[in-house]
Design a protein around this nucleic acid. Structure first.
Length: 457
RNA sequence: GGCGUCGUACCCAAGUGGUUUAAGGGACCGGUUUGCAAAACCGUUAUUCGUCGGUUCGAAUCCGACCGACGCCUCCA
């Protein structure tokens, strides 16, 4: 099955066609680095990673960008509150974002452009819009004139008229948006010089110009959270498409929100869960699986219970994986029927819940064979391939399973003593050694073929 | 107010016109196995998909109304 993606432009699933045969270019709106991200932010970032991995699974090479918004009102507020500098604040939270991304197994992006590194280009871009009569100046602010761009409204129907109460900034139209913000007193020393005076670029312009510079204004896929669909993506595409003859992006993908108590998680509402703590308490693999266990276009409610369930799922997969020896790291990935069901699910608009279902059905089928001792060489190969395939997308398997892990000497010795106790039917001693081994971080299971040690996750 | 999304078992969550008289995970109960435990296996848990109508040979899937939840329209992943 070819890859299908739900395109917000048509509100339909469409067969994905890349601009170039080999390489797919994607851009996702990244974090504003003024404080620690919450788990809802990372639902979207993990979704970008999912898309990236599924594209690669389909044989595409990808060129990805996730931007760092490092100029913004909230950042300036923070700088003022903490009597700090812009760079100090933004580099601190950018680092935190990068570390959390790594911890959640998000593959590195080809580009992580910072808005501050493109201000010159943004000024030139805004000037080009003014030259084309697509933007106008008002008290040192520059606004995009939506009346001058008839195609405005790809994501929303605009009917609103200009109303006095919405118009403190003297915009011509209520939906005209800021390209350049005139410096305010509270901005302190955070400003850039331009022909229109001191100020800084608006958010929508930041993304537009970074895409212009990195990708020549032409993307295969643009992603973001649903809340960015309007006005951010509308405005971003309007200004860039007004200046160029082609689309900014052929596909627009939007990830739904992570809710808490049935409401959108947000920093401004104060109802958010810190990712860092969540990872510390549950492990990054559990958090990652939780984020991938619902389809990206459905609302998800946060709950600890779900995380606990994900933990059990991972344990189940790891137990299954322990049946096989991953000695030969370079096994060839030859896909058979079951594998293709899994790939088809992912290719159907990244249907991770279905893909997980396919994988668990397979595990169940193999476990039956293992229980009956009727598993053959082919089954083992299929299992190894499936584990690798699954992990190439979900990336949550215990790394101990993917290599022939060594049992430490002290554990080995305890196992030998326990084996002797068992031969003597000294269950009391046997159980106490089991407890001892457990306290050292290892499980022991007694199977028909003897003791089976495994590292505690 | 305008625009939009969603409502599937005890919980989570796929399926969006016929091979589904509804995947998968968690939970519960009973059984096999086991010195015990754990795991694994077997069996049980929705004749039903928010409600009521309609279209159709056939609907959880399409249409309408209603009820309920949420999102965007203002910073926001």
């Amino acid at each position: 099955m070819s890859l299908k993606l739900y395109n917000s432009l048509s509100s339909k699933k469409e067969i994905f066609k890349s601009i170039s045969d080999k390489i797919v270019k994607t851009y996702g709106c990244g974090p504003t680095v003024y404080n620690d991200p919450h788990i809802g932010n990372f639902r979207t970032f993990v979704f970008y990673d999912l898309l990236n991995r599924v594209l690669q699974l389909n044989g595409y090479e990808t060129e990805t960008a996730v931007n760092i918004t490092d100029i913004d009102d909230k950042i300036i507020d923070r700088v003022n509150q903490e009597n700090s500098s812009l760079k100090e604040i933004t580099s601190k939270y950018e680092l935190s974002f990068m570390e959390l991304s790594k911890s959640l197994k998000i593959l590195p992006n080809n580009h992580n452009p910072r808005a501050t590194e493109y201000v010159e280009e943004m000024i030139e871009f805004i000037q080009a819009l003014i030259d084309q009569n697509l933007a106008y100046e008002m008290n040192g602010n520059i606004f995009f004139d939506i009346e001058a761009y008839p195609k405005y409204g790809k994501f929303i129907n605009i009917k609103d008229d200009l109303e006095a109460e919405d118009n403190e900034l003297l915009k011509r139209n209520r939906n005209d948006f800021t390209l350049w913000k005139a410096k305010k007193d509270s901005d302190g020393n955070i400003f850039w010089e331009s022909e229109w005076g001191k100020g800084r670029p608006g958010w929508h312009t930041e993304c537009a110009v970074m895409i212009k510079m990195l990708f020549d204004g032409r993307l295969d896929i643009h992603c973001g959270g649903v809340d960015l669909k309007f006005p951010h993506h509308e405005n971003e595409s309007a200004q860039i498409e007004a200046l160029q003859k082609h689309n900014l992006s052929n596909y627009w993908l939007h990830a739904e929100h992570l809710n808490i108590d049935d409401e959108k998680m947000s920093k401004s509402s104060g109802n958010f869960i810190d990712v860092n703590n969540l990872i510390k308490e549950n492990g990054s693999d559990v958090v990652r699986l939780f984020l991938l266990s619902a389809h990206y276009r459905t609302k998800v409610s946060f709950s600890q219970k779900k995380l606990d369930e994900c933990k059990k799922m991972i344990e189940k997969i790891n137990r299954f994986a322990k049946n096989f020896k991953f000695v030969n790291q370079s096994i060839e990935l030859k896909f058979s029927y079951d594998h293709n069901l899994f790939i088809d699910a992912l290719n159907d608009d990244l249907n991770t819940p279905e893909a997980i279902g396919v994988f668990f059905s397979f595990i169940s089928e193999m476990n039956k064979k293992i229980a009956k001792n009727s598993i053959n060489k082919l089954d083992e190969e299929k299992s190894l391939v499936f584990l690798k395939l699954f992990n190439s997308i979900f990336d949550i398997l215990d790394s101990h399973n993917l290599q022939d892990h060594k049992i430490p000497k002290n554990i080995q010795n305890l196992l030998i003593s326990r084996q002797k106790a068992r031969e003597n039917q000294d269950w009391k001693l046997s159980d106490s050694i089991r407890d001892k081994i457990l306290s050292l971080g290892w499980h022991v299971e007694d199977t028909s073929s003897g003791q089976k040690p495994s590292k505690k996750n």
